[in-house]
């Protein structure tokens, strides 16, 4: 019985972590679907969102949760448009690899800027639920984790609907697949790309807001970007459901490999699996998506 509770707790922990990675993966996929590039600063966007929400709006200005969330989302949307203008637009006709390099530079810049702006102390905020949680049959779940999972499912549904059903979403996909053809359809490709960056930055902002109460906000938070990246590869690039499934897989692998193989090398195990996928199954678990050119 005790053993069962422990295994259940492991599964809960894996799913909780996994939904966080899935959330980050959704942000990656959004830009990938729209521009065909991987924004390697996505993790740093999450960190920045966390800092704006936790460090500035909550701790400094004392705003309650909802206004803080809203303002963070708006600030990050604007930031997304600005960074698109600086990082993507000048390189729009270059190889996607060049854009990815410039996103790496943006990530480094953001880490350093946040160090200057918010200092070295991790920012700790309680969010809506603090450290409160459920306890059922020896398994404990933080409310915050349930909240994250619910948010991820809602965002997944919204994103799925958005890309499949709305004209805006479809035209974003069209721009990603063939920018010239999309422009010949009358689509203002650069406006679409700006919207794409704005939305994916907003997703990152939500990620930062949701993560702040469980992981605190520090420069290390940007590392969730790597796990989100792994989730995208495992789930298949561009596949929205795949991203969330990939996230859950990464979360479960991390928890179980830490329990039964090595807690010290759990990240190495995740990345070994990532490399395995890149070599043997680059289209991801679901196998529907196209390959990303890196």
């Amino acid at each position: 019985m005790a053993e069962l509770a422990i295994v259940l707790q492991q599964i809960v922990a894996g799913l909780a972590l996994g939904s966080i990675y899935g959330l980050v993966a959704l942000g990656y996929n959004f830009i990938f679907n729209a521009v065909g590039i991987v924004n390697l600063a996505q993790g740093d966007f999450v960190m920045l969102g966390g800092y704006i929400y936790g460090g500035t709006l909550t701790l400094l200005l004392g705003l309650p949760f909802l206004p803080a969330l809203l303002l963070t989302a708006i600030a990050m949307a604007i930031f997304g448009i600005v960074s698109q203008r600086i990082v993507y637009y000048p390189l729009r006709d270059a190889h996607p690899r060049m854009v990815m390099l410039s996103t790496i530079a943006l990530g480094i810049f953001l880490k350093n800027i946040s160090l200057i702006a918010w200092g070295t102390y991790p920012v700790s905020v309680s969010g809506l639920f603090g450290q409160r949680g459920l306890r059922i049959a020896g398994v404990s779940i933080l409310y915050q984790y349930i909240f994250i999972l619910v948010c991820v499912i809602i965002l997944l549904a919204i994103q799925q609907y958005f890309f499949k059903k709305t004209t805006l979403g479809k035209s974003m996909r069209a721009v990603a697949q063939d920018r010239l053809a999309a422009m010949l359809m009358g689509i203002d490709a650069y406006k679409m790309i700006a919207i794409t960056f704005a939305y994916s930055s907003t997703l990152a902002a939500i990620g930062g807001v949701l993560l702040a109460p469980v992981f605190m906000v520090s420069q290390v938070l940007a590392n969730v970007g790597l796990k989100g990246f792994a989730a995208c590869v495992i789930g298949g690039w561009g596949d929205i459901t795949g991203a969330v499934i990939g996230g859950l897989v990464v979360g479960l692998v991390e928890v179980f490999s830490a329990s039964y193989i090595s807690s010290v090398y759990k990240d190495a195990i995740v990345f070994a699996i990532l490399i395995g996928f890149l070599i043997f199954r680059p289209q991801g678990i679901l196998g529907r998506a196209t390959e990303v050119s890196l």
Partner: peptide
């Protein structure tokens, strides 16, 4: 230059964009 990852219907929908 049709959109390879859009369905036929979605491609036509893009044509309808203007």
């Amino acid at each position: 230059r049709i959109f390879p990852q859009l369905t036929v219907m979605e491609n036509l929908d893009m044509g309808f964009y203007p």
